[in-house]
Design a protein around this nucleic acid. Structure first.
Lengths: 244, 244
DNA sequence: TCGTGTGAAGACGTTCACAGCT
DNA sequence: AGCTGTGAACGTCTTCACACGA
Protein backbone atom coordinates (compact mmCIF):
# COMPACT_ATOMS: atom_id res chain seq x y z
CA UNK A 1 0.00 0.00 0.00
CA UNK A 2 2.79 2.41 0.62
CA UNK A 3 4.93 1.16 -2.17
CA UNK A 4 5.73 4.45 -3.86
CA UNK A 5 7.33 5.59 -0.65
CA UNK A 6 9.31 2.53 0.19
CA UNK A 7 12.61 3.72 -1.07
CA UNK A 8 12.39 6.62 1.27
CA UNK A 9 12.43 4.43 4.27
CA UNK A 10 15.43 2.33 3.50
CA UNK A 11 17.66 4.46 5.67
CA UNK A 12 16.10 6.24 8.58
CA UNK A 13 16.89 9.93 8.73
CA UNK A 14 18.71 10.52 11.97
CA UNK A 15 18.20 14.24 12.15
CA UNK A 16 14.48 14.06 11.51
CA UNK A 17 13.18 14.27 15.03
CA UNK A 18 9.49 14.50 14.30
CA UNK A 19 9.29 11.49 12.08
CA UNK A 20 6.93 11.27 9.23
CA UNK A 21 3.20 10.76 9.26
CA UNK A 22 2.02 7.59 7.62
CA UNK A 23 -1.23 8.18 5.87
CA UNK A 24 -0.15 9.97 2.72
CA UNK A 25 2.60 10.38 0.21
CA UNK A 26 3.41 13.50 2.13
CA UNK A 27 4.62 11.48 5.04
CA UNK A 28 7.72 12.90 3.52
CA UNK A 29 6.33 16.02 4.98
CA UNK A 30 6.19 16.17 8.72
CA UNK A 31 2.42 16.10 8.73
CA UNK A 32 -0.10 15.17 6.11
CA UNK A 33 0.53 18.61 4.68
CA UNK A 34 0.43 19.50 1.04
CA UNK A 35 3.69 20.86 -0.23
CA UNK A 36 3.26 24.02 -2.32
CA UNK A 37 4.47 23.81 -5.87
CA UNK A 38 7.00 26.66 -5.52
CA UNK A 39 8.62 24.78 -2.67
CA UNK A 40 9.20 21.74 -4.82
CA UNK A 41 10.58 23.92 -7.55
CA UNK A 42 13.06 25.51 -5.18
CA UNK A 43 13.95 22.13 -3.75
CA UNK A 44 15.18 21.16 -7.20
CA UNK A 45 17.37 24.23 -7.24
CA UNK A 46 18.73 23.50 -3.79
CA UNK A 47 19.49 19.97 -4.84
CA UNK A 48 21.51 21.14 -7.77
CA UNK A 49 23.50 23.59 -5.66
CA UNK A 50 24.04 20.99 -2.98
CA UNK A 51 25.26 18.39 -5.41
CA UNK A 52 27.75 20.80 -6.83
CA UNK A 53 28.98 21.97 -3.43
CA UNK A 54 29.25 18.40 -2.23
CA UNK A 55 31.28 17.43 -5.28
CA UNK A 56 33.54 20.37 -4.59
CA UNK A 57 34.19 18.81 -1.22
CA UNK A 58 32.28 21.23 0.94
CA UNK A 59 31.36 19.64 4.27
CA UNK A 60 29.06 22.03 6.02
CA UNK A 61 26.90 24.94 5.00
CA UNK A 62 24.73 27.61 6.55
CA UNK A 63 21.25 28.37 5.30
CA UNK A 64 22.52 31.84 4.55
CA UNK A 65 25.20 30.56 2.19
CA UNK A 66 23.05 28.02 0.39
CA UNK A 67 20.26 30.54 0.03
CA UNK A 68 22.51 33.06 -1.62
CA UNK A 69 23.80 30.38 -3.91
CA UNK A 70 20.26 29.46 -4.89
CA UNK A 71 19.05 33.04 -5.17
CA UNK A 72 16.52 33.01 -2.33
CA UNK A 73 16.26 34.36 1.21
CA UNK A 74 17.65 32.22 3.98
CA UNK A 75 14.40 32.20 5.90
CA UNK A 76 12.67 30.83 2.88
CA UNK A 77 15.17 28.05 2.52
CA UNK A 78 14.70 27.10 6.15
CA UNK A 79 10.92 27.22 5.83
CA UNK A 80 11.09 25.03 2.77
CA UNK A 81 13.16 22.43 4.54
CA UNK A 82 10.90 22.64 7.57
CA UNK A 83 8.15 20.93 5.60
CA UNK A 84 10.16 17.75 5.82
CA UNK A 85 11.92 17.83 9.15
CA UNK A 86 14.87 19.28 10.99
CA UNK A 87 18.16 18.67 9.32
CA UNK A 88 20.46 21.38 10.57
CA UNK A 89 22.57 21.92 13.63
CA UNK A 90 22.03 25.23 15.38
CA UNK A 91 25.07 27.38 15.50
CA UNK A 92 26.66 25.32 12.74
CA UNK A 93 24.51 24.79 9.68
CA UNK A 94 23.81 21.75 7.54
CA UNK A 95 25.83 18.71 6.67
CA UNK A 96 26.14 18.99 2.92
CA UNK A 97 26.18 15.29 2.16
CA UNK A 98 23.27 14.52 4.40
CA UNK A 99 21.15 17.37 3.12
CA UNK A 100 21.86 16.39 -0.46
CA UNK A 101 20.61 12.90 0.24
CA UNK A 102 17.52 14.14 1.99
CA UNK A 103 16.47 16.59 -0.67
CA UNK A 104 17.14 14.04 -3.37
CA UNK A 105 14.99 11.56 -1.51
CA UNK A 106 12.13 14.00 -1.14
CA UNK A 107 12.15 14.67 -4.85
CA UNK A 108 12.29 10.98 -5.62
CA UNK A 109 15.47 11.38 -7.61
CA UNK A 110 16.66 7.92 -6.78
CA UNK A 111 15.97 5.62 -9.66
CA UNK A 112 16.13 7.03 -13.13
CA UNK A 113 12.79 7.43 -14.82
CA UNK A 114 12.04 6.64 -18.42
CA UNK A 115 10.05 9.11 -20.42
CA UNK A 116 8.97 9.28 -24.05
CA UNK A 117 9.02 12.19 -26.42
CA UNK A 118 6.35 12.88 -29.02
CA UNK A 119 7.04 15.02 -32.04
CA UNK A 120 10.57 14.96 -33.37
CA UNK A 121 10.82 18.39 -34.94
CA UNK A 122 13.55 20.91 -34.23
CA UNK A 123 12.81 21.22 -30.59
CA UNK A 124 12.08 17.56 -30.02
CA UNK A 125 15.34 16.62 -31.64
CA UNK A 126 17.26 18.99 -29.41
CA UNK A 127 15.59 17.65 -26.30
CA UNK A 128 16.46 14.09 -27.31
CA UNK A 129 20.11 14.90 -26.88
CA UNK A 130 19.75 17.34 -23.99
CA UNK A 131 22.22 16.32 -21.31
CA UNK A 132 20.46 18.11 -18.48
CA UNK A 133 17.77 15.45 -18.18
CA UNK A 134 20.20 12.66 -17.60
CA UNK A 135 22.07 14.62 -14.99
CA UNK A 136 18.80 14.87 -13.11
CA UNK A 137 18.05 11.16 -13.39
CA UNK A 138 15.74 11.07 -16.36
CA UNK A 139 16.19 9.59 -19.74
CA UNK A 140 14.14 9.67 -22.88
CA UNK A 141 13.91 6.06 -23.94
CA UNK A 142 12.07 6.49 -27.23
CA UNK A 143 10.61 9.10 -29.51
CA UNK A 144 7.55 9.06 -31.74
CA UNK A 145 6.63 11.03 -34.81
CA UNK A 146 4.10 10.92 -37.60
CA UNK A 147 7.02 10.70 -40.02
CA UNK A 148 9.66 8.71 -38.17
CA UNK A 149 11.89 8.42 -41.20
CA UNK A 150 12.23 12.07 -42.12
CA UNK A 151 15.85 13.11 -42.59
CA UNK A 152 17.20 14.69 -39.42
CA UNK A 153 20.91 15.05 -40.00
CA UNK A 154 21.74 14.38 -36.44
CA UNK A 155 22.90 11.48 -34.37
CA UNK A 156 20.58 10.55 -31.61
CA UNK A 157 20.79 7.43 -29.54
CA UNK A 158 17.06 6.91 -29.17
CA UNK A 159 14.87 5.17 -31.72
CA UNK A 160 12.16 7.16 -33.47
CA UNK A 161 8.99 5.14 -33.95
CA UNK A 162 5.81 5.91 -35.86
CA UNK A 163 2.90 7.23 -33.84
CA UNK A 164 1.03 3.98 -34.24
CA UNK A 165 3.50 2.30 -31.89
CA UNK A 166 3.08 4.72 -29.06
CA UNK A 167 0.19 3.11 -27.23
CA UNK A 168 1.81 -0.29 -27.17
CA UNK A 169 5.15 1.15 -26.12
CA UNK A 170 3.97 3.16 -23.18
CA UNK A 171 1.77 0.35 -21.98
CA UNK A 172 4.36 -2.37 -22.13
CA UNK A 173 7.09 -0.20 -20.65
CA UNK A 174 4.76 1.39 -18.08
CA UNK A 175 5.79 4.89 -19.08
CA UNK A 176 4.08 7.58 -17.07
CA UNK A 177 5.66 10.78 -18.39
CA UNK A 178 5.67 12.18 -21.91
CA UNK A 179 7.37 15.20 -23.39
CA UNK A 180 5.03 16.73 -25.94
CA UNK A 181 6.63 18.62 -28.83
CA UNK A 182 4.04 18.36 -31.54
CA UNK A 183 2.78 21.33 -33.52
CA UNK A 184 0.08 23.21 -31.61
CA UNK A 185 -2.74 21.85 -33.73
CA UNK A 186 -1.93 18.26 -32.89
CA UNK A 187 -1.20 18.71 -29.21
CA UNK A 188 -4.65 18.21 -27.73
CA UNK A 189 -5.44 15.05 -29.67
CA UNK A 190 -2.03 13.61 -29.02
CA UNK A 191 -2.33 14.32 -25.32
CA UNK A 192 -5.70 12.57 -25.22
CA UNK A 193 -4.18 9.55 -26.91
CA UNK A 194 -1.28 9.39 -24.49
CA UNK A 195 -3.54 9.73 -21.49
CA UNK A 196 -5.80 6.96 -22.76
CA UNK A 197 -2.82 4.65 -22.64
CA UNK A 198 -1.49 5.44 -19.24
CA UNK A 199 0.46 8.69 -19.33
CA UNK A 200 -0.21 10.76 -16.22
CA UNK A 201 2.37 13.54 -16.58
CA UNK A 202 2.95 15.72 -19.63
CA UNK A 203 5.73 18.22 -20.14
CA UNK A 204 4.06 20.32 -22.79
CA UNK A 205 6.13 22.41 -25.17
CA UNK A 206 3.28 23.01 -27.58
CA UNK A 207 1.77 26.48 -27.26
CA UNK A 208 -1.64 25.07 -26.51
CA UNK A 209 -3.68 24.91 -23.34
CA UNK A 210 -4.31 21.21 -22.86
CA UNK A 211 -7.59 20.01 -21.42
CA UNK A 212 -6.86 16.93 -19.34
CA UNK A 213 -8.63 14.90 -16.66
CA UNK A 214 -7.85 15.51 -13.01
CA UNK A 215 -5.50 12.60 -12.55
CA UNK A 216 -3.12 13.99 -15.15
CA UNK A 217 -0.53 16.69 -14.44
CA UNK A 218 0.62 19.07 -17.13
CA UNK A 219 3.66 21.33 -16.91
CA UNK A 220 3.71 23.91 -19.64
CA UNK A 221 6.95 25.25 -21.01
CA UNK A 222 5.94 28.03 -23.30
CA UNK A 223 8.98 29.58 -24.89
CA UNK A 224 7.24 32.42 -26.65
CA UNK A 225 5.36 33.44 -23.53
CA UNK A 226 8.57 33.50 -21.53
CA UNK A 227 10.04 35.90 -24.04
CA UNK A 228 6.93 38.03 -24.13
CA UNK A 229 7.01 38.22 -20.36
CA UNK A 230 10.61 39.24 -20.32
CA UNK A 231 9.93 41.88 -22.90
CA UNK A 232 7.06 43.33 -20.89
CA UNK A 233 9.03 43.56 -17.69
CA UNK A 234 12.14 45.12 -19.16
CA UNK A 235 10.01 47.69 -20.92
CA UNK A 236 8.35 48.50 -17.68
CA UNK A 237 11.58 48.58 -15.72
CA UNK A 238 13.28 50.79 -18.27
CA UNK A 239 10.48 53.25 -18.08
CA UNK A 240 10.13 53.26 -14.33
CA UNK A 241 13.80 54.05 -14.02
CA UNK A 242 13.75 56.80 -16.60
CA UNK A 243 11.08 58.56 -14.54
CA UNK A 244 13.10 58.68 -11.34
CA UNK B 1 9.87 61.08 -21.61
CA UNK B 2 7.02 58.69 -22.15
CA UNK B 3 8.41 57.30 -25.32
CA UNK B 4 8.14 53.60 -24.52
CA UNK B 5 4.43 54.06 -24.16
CA UNK B 6 3.79 56.14 -27.21
CA UNK B 7 2.56 53.37 -29.41
CA UNK B 8 -0.13 52.69 -26.91
CA UNK B 9 -1.70 56.03 -27.45
CA UNK B 10 -1.91 55.99 -31.19
CA UNK B 11 -5.51 54.86 -31.11
CA UNK B 12 -7.60 55.80 -28.11
CA UNK B 13 -9.41 52.88 -26.56
CA UNK B 14 -13.09 53.70 -26.78
CA UNK B 15 -14.29 51.25 -24.16
CA UNK B 16 -11.75 52.30 -21.60
CA UNK B 17 -13.88 54.58 -19.50
CA UNK B 18 -11.47 55.29 -16.70
CA UNK B 19 -8.59 56.38 -18.82
CA UNK B 20 -5.06 55.79 -17.83
CA UNK B 21 -2.91 57.54 -15.29
CA UNK B 22 0.04 59.33 -16.73
CA UNK B 23 2.98 59.04 -14.45
CA UNK B 24 4.23 55.52 -15.09
CA UNK B 25 4.54 52.78 -17.62
CA UNK B 26 1.56 51.31 -15.92
CA UNK B 27 -0.65 54.04 -17.26
CA UNK B 28 -1.65 50.99 -19.17
CA UNK B 29 -3.14 50.01 -15.89
CA UNK B 30 -6.05 52.06 -14.69
CA UNK B 31 -4.01 53.49 -11.85
CA UNK B 32 -0.31 53.59 -11.23
CA UNK B 33 -0.71 50.01 -10.09
CA UNK B 34 1.87 47.32 -10.48
CA UNK B 35 0.68 44.42 -12.53
CA UNK B 36 1.45 41.05 -10.95
CA UNK B 37 3.63 38.73 -12.96
CA UNK B 38 1.06 35.93 -13.12
CA UNK B 39 -1.39 38.35 -14.68
CA UNK B 40 1.02 39.16 -17.49
CA UNK B 41 1.66 35.51 -18.03
CA UNK B 42 -2.03 34.79 -18.37
CA UNK B 43 -2.49 37.79 -20.62
CA UNK B 44 -0.15 36.11 -23.07
CA UNK B 45 -2.31 33.03 -22.99
CA UNK B 46 -5.46 35.04 -23.50
CA UNK B 47 -3.87 36.79 -26.42
CA UNK B 48 -3.08 33.54 -28.10
CA UNK B 49 -6.58 32.22 -27.61
CA UNK B 50 -8.09 35.47 -28.79
CA UNK B 51 -5.96 35.58 -31.91
CA UNK B 52 -7.03 32.10 -32.81
CA UNK B 53 -10.69 32.73 -32.13
CA UNK B 54 -10.59 35.95 -34.09
CA UNK B 55 -8.98 34.21 -37.05
CA UNK B 56 -11.69 31.61 -36.87
CA UNK B 57 -14.13 34.44 -37.36
CA UNK B 58 -15.60 34.55 -33.88
CA UNK B 59 -17.17 37.94 -33.17
CA UNK B 60 -18.11 37.98 -29.55
CA UNK B 61 -17.12 36.02 -26.50
CA UNK B 62 -18.07 35.69 -22.85
CA UNK B 63 -15.49 35.66 -20.09
CA UNK B 64 -16.75 32.20 -19.25
CA UNK B 65 -15.94 30.88 -22.71
CA UNK B 66 -12.53 32.50 -23.04
CA UNK B 67 -11.59 31.43 -19.54
CA UNK B 68 -12.38 27.82 -20.24
CA UNK B 69 -10.38 28.04 -23.43
CA UNK B 70 -7.43 29.45 -21.53
CA UNK B 71 -7.74 27.08 -18.61
CA UNK B 72 -8.59 29.60 -15.90
CA UNK B 73 -11.67 30.67 -13.92
CA UNK B 74 -13.85 33.34 -15.49
CA UNK B 75 -13.61 35.61 -12.46
CA UNK B 76 -9.89 35.53 -12.77
CA UNK B 77 -10.00 36.52 -16.39
CA UNK B 78 -12.25 39.45 -15.58
CA UNK B 79 -10.05 40.52 -12.70
CA UNK B 80 -7.01 40.36 -14.95
CA UNK B 81 -8.63 42.56 -17.55
CA UNK B 82 -9.85 44.92 -14.86
CA UNK B 83 -6.27 46.05 -14.27
CA UNK B 84 -6.44 47.81 -17.60
CA UNK B 85 -9.98 49.02 -17.98
CA UNK B 86 -13.48 47.93 -18.90
CA UNK B 87 -13.75 46.25 -22.23
CA UNK B 88 -16.85 44.12 -22.08
CA UNK B 89 -20.53 44.67 -22.54
CA UNK B 90 -22.72 43.40 -19.74
CA UNK B 91 -25.10 40.73 -20.80
CA UNK B 92 -23.12 40.18 -23.97
CA UNK B 93 -19.42 39.64 -23.47
CA UNK B 94 -16.38 40.93 -25.28
CA UNK B 95 -15.78 41.97 -28.84
CA UNK B 96 -13.11 39.53 -29.93
CA UNK B 97 -11.29 41.83 -32.32
CA UNK B 98 -11.24 44.73 -29.92
CA UNK B 99 -10.06 42.64 -27.00
CA UNK B 100 -7.33 41.08 -29.09
CA UNK B 101 -6.04 44.51 -29.96
CA UNK B 102 -6.15 45.70 -26.40
CA UNK B 103 -4.36 42.74 -24.90
CA UNK B 104 -1.75 42.87 -27.64
CA UNK B 105 -1.21 46.52 -26.91
CA UNK B 106 -0.79 45.95 -23.20
CA UNK B 107 1.83 43.32 -23.84
CA UNK B 108 3.63 45.60 -26.27
CA UNK B 109 3.38 43.05 -29.03
CA UNK B 110 3.30 45.70 -31.67
CA UNK B 111 6.66 46.02 -33.31
CA UNK B 112 8.78 42.93 -33.58
CA UNK B 113 11.74 42.81 -31.27
CA UNK B 114 15.19 41.59 -32.15
CA UNK B 115 16.95 39.31 -29.74
CA UNK B 116 20.27 37.47 -29.84
CA UNK B 117 21.06 33.91 -28.89
CA UNK B 118 24.25 32.86 -27.17
CA UNK B 119 25.48 29.27 -27.31
CA UNK B 120 24.63 27.37 -30.46
CA UNK B 121 24.52 23.83 -29.11
CA UNK B 122 21.65 21.43 -29.57
CA UNK B 123 19.15 23.54 -27.81
CA UNK B 124 20.35 26.84 -29.19
CA UNK B 125 20.17 25.48 -32.68
CA UNK B 126 16.62 24.33 -32.16
CA UNK B 127 15.58 27.69 -30.78
CA UNK B 128 17.10 29.45 -33.77
CA UNK B 129 14.52 27.83 -35.98
CA UNK B 130 11.67 27.79 -33.50
CA UNK B 131 8.62 29.24 -35.22
CA UNK B 132 6.77 30.15 -32.06
CA UNK B 133 8.89 33.22 -31.43
CA UNK B 134 8.09 34.77 -34.74
CA UNK B 135 4.40 34.15 -34.30
CA UNK B 136 4.65 36.20 -31.12
CA UNK B 137 6.53 39.04 -32.77
CA UNK B 138 10.12 38.22 -31.88
CA UNK B 139 12.97 37.21 -34.00
CA UNK B 140 16.46 36.06 -33.27
CA UNK B 141 18.64 38.22 -35.46
CA UNK B 142 22.02 36.67 -34.73
CA UNK B 143 23.67 33.91 -32.76
CA UNK B 144 27.05 33.72 -31.06
CA UNK B 145 29.22 30.81 -30.09
CA UNK B 146 32.77 30.15 -28.99
CA UNK B 147 33.11 27.92 -32.02
CA UNK B 148 30.96 29.57 -34.67
CA UNK B 149 32.20 27.27 -37.42
CA UNK B 150 31.46 23.93 -35.85
CA UNK B 151 29.53 21.64 -38.18
CA UNK B 152 25.83 21.85 -37.41
CA UNK B 153 24.12 19.96 -40.23
CA UNK B 154 21.19 22.20 -40.22
CA UNK B 155 19.96 25.11 -42.20
CA UNK B 156 19.41 28.20 -40.17
CA UNK B 157 18.78 31.63 -41.54
CA UNK B 158 20.69 33.52 -38.87
CA UNK B 159 24.43 34.11 -38.92
CA UNK B 160 26.55 32.55 -36.18
CA UNK B 161 29.32 34.89 -35.02
CA UNK B 162 32.23 34.29 -32.68
CA UNK B 163 31.79 35.47 -29.10
CA UNK B 164 34.21 38.31 -29.63
CA UNK B 165 31.65 40.05 -31.83
CA UNK B 166 28.88 40.01 -29.32
CA UNK B 167 29.56 43.26 -27.51
CA UNK B 168 29.82 45.26 -30.69
CA UNK B 169 26.74 43.64 -32.14
CA UNK B 170 24.41 44.24 -29.24
CA UNK B 171 25.62 47.77 -28.83
CA UNK B 172 25.29 48.84 -32.41
CA UNK B 173 21.94 47.13 -32.84
CA UNK B 174 20.67 48.21 -29.45
CA UNK B 175 19.68 44.68 -28.51
CA UNK B 176 18.10 44.41 -25.08
CA UNK B 177 17.17 40.74 -24.84
CA UNK B 178 19.39 37.68 -25.03
CA UNK B 179 18.59 34.00 -25.03
CA UNK B 180 21.28 32.20 -23.08
CA UNK B 181 21.98 28.59 -24.03
CA UNK B 182 25.58 28.12 -22.95
CA UNK B 183 26.75 25.19 -20.85
CA UNK B 184 26.08 25.82 -17.15
CA UNK B 185 29.69 26.59 -16.35
CA UNK B 186 29.86 29.48 -18.80
CA UNK B 187 26.48 30.98 -18.04
CA UNK B 188 27.37 33.41 -15.26
CA UNK B 189 30.36 34.91 -17.02
CA UNK B 190 28.53 35.19 -20.29
CA UNK B 191 25.61 36.87 -18.60
CA UNK B 192 27.92 39.39 -16.98
CA UNK B 193 29.47 40.16 -20.35
CA UNK B 194 26.09 40.67 -21.99
CA UNK B 195 24.88 42.90 -19.21
CA UNK B 196 28.01 45.00 -19.42
CA UNK B 197 27.13 45.78 -23.01
CA UNK B 198 23.52 46.67 -22.61
CA UNK B 199 21.43 43.54 -22.28
CA UNK B 200 18.66 44.00 -19.71
CA UNK B 201 16.62 40.86 -20.22
CA UNK B 202 17.88 37.29 -20.27
CA UNK B 203 15.93 34.19 -21.12
CA UNK B 204 18.14 31.67 -19.39
CA UNK B 205 18.14 28.04 -20.45
CA UNK B 206 21.33 27.19 -18.60
CA UNK B 207 20.71 25.31 -15.35
CA UNK B 208 22.45 27.95 -13.31
CA UNK B 209 21.17 30.59 -10.91
CA UNK B 210 22.39 33.84 -12.42
CA UNK B 211 23.47 36.68 -10.19
CA UNK B 212 22.53 39.91 -11.91
CA UNK B 213 22.10 43.57 -10.96
CA UNK B 214 18.66 44.96 -10.19
CA UNK B 215 18.06 46.56 -13.53
CA UNK B 216 18.30 43.22 -15.31
CA UNK B 217 15.43 40.74 -15.56
CA UNK B 218 16.06 37.03 -15.85
CA UNK B 219 13.48 34.43 -16.83
CA UNK B 220 14.68 30.93 -16.17
CA UNK B 221 13.54 28.03 -18.28
CA UNK B 222 14.91 24.99 -16.58
CA UNK B 223 13.95 21.89 -18.48
CA UNK B 224 15.27 19.36 -16.02
CA UNK B 225 13.52 21.03 -13.11
CA UNK B 226 10.25 21.03 -14.98
CA UNK B 227 10.56 17.30 -15.45
CA UNK B 228 11.56 16.72 -11.86
CA UNK B 229 8.56 18.73 -10.75
CA UNK B 230 6.23 16.76 -12.93
CA UNK B 231 7.67 13.55 -11.62
CA UNK B 232 7.15 14.61 -8.03
CA UNK B 233 3.55 15.60 -8.52
CA UNK B 234 2.48 12.53 -10.43
CA UNK B 235 4.09 10.33 -7.82
CA UNK B 236 2.20 12.18 -5.18
CA UNK B 237 -1.06 12.12 -7.07
CA UNK B 238 -0.77 8.41 -7.80
CA UNK B 239 -0.27 7.68 -4.17
CA UNK B 240 -2.98 9.94 -2.85
CA UNK B 241 -5.45 8.25 -5.13
CA UNK B 242 -4.40 4.76 -4.19
CA UNK B 243 -5.13 5.56 -0.55
CA UNK B 244 -8.73 6.60 -1.13
C1' DT C 1 -32.01 37.45 -17.77
C1' DC C 2 -27.41 37.28 -18.89
C1' DG C 3 -22.75 38.53 -18.21
C1' DT C 4 -19.50 42.10 -16.70
C1' DG C 5 -17.10 44.66 -13.01
C1' DT C 6 -15.59 44.88 -8.29
C1' DG C 7 -15.34 45.27 -3.06
C1' DA C 8 -14.76 41.95 0.44
C1' DA C 9 -13.28 37.57 2.04
C1' DG C 10 -10.35 33.94 1.70
C1' DA C 11 -6.33 31.12 0.59
C1' DC C 12 -1.75 30.96 -0.06
C1' DG C 13 3.09 32.00 0.27
C1' DT C 14 6.75 34.92 2.12
C1' DT C 15 9.08 37.50 5.58
C1' DC C 16 9.83 38.89 10.28
C1' DA C 17 11.19 38.37 14.85
C1' DC C 18 12.73 35.75 18.14
C1' DA C 19 13.01 31.48 20.93
C1' DG C 20 16.03 27.70 21.54
C1' DC C 21 19.89 24.59 20.75
C1' DT C 22 25.11 23.91 20.25
C1' DA D 1 27.96 34.02 19.63
C1' DG D 2 26.17 31.71 15.82
C1' DC D 3 22.64 29.66 13.25
C1' DT D 4 18.51 26.87 13.01
C1' DG D 5 13.48 26.32 13.52
C1' DT D 6 8.98 28.38 13.77
C1' DG D 7 4.66 31.02 15.26
C1' DA D 8 2.83 35.29 13.97
C1' DA D 9 2.43 39.20 10.85
C1' DC D 10 2.34 40.53 6.44
C1' DG D 11 1.56 40.86 1.56
C1' DT D 12 -0.08 38.98 -2.61
C1' DC D 13 -3.12 36.63 -5.58
C1' DT D 14 -7.55 34.14 -6.12
C1' DT D 15 -12.30 33.38 -5.40
C1' DC D 16 -16.77 34.72 -3.84
C1' DA D 17 -20.90 37.26 -3.87
C1' DC D 18 -23.41 40.46 -5.68
C1' DA D 19 -24.40 45.09 -7.69
C1' DC D 20 -25.11 46.97 -11.97
C1' DG D 21 -25.79 47.73 -16.97
C1' DA D 22 -27.45 45.92 -21.54
Amino acid sequence: MRSPCQQLRETPLPASGKAAGDSSFDHLAKNGEDIPKPVIYRLSIYLRCLTQLRDEGRQTLSSEALAEYAGVKSTQLRKDLAYFGQFGTRGLGYNVTQLTTIVGRVLGTKKSRSVVLIGVGNLGLALLSYQGFRREGFHISAAFDLVPQKPRNKFITQPVFPMSFVSHYIQSNRIRIAILCTPPGAAQDTAALLIRHGITGILNFAPTVLQVPDHVTVNNVDLAIELENLSYFIQKKTFTESVR
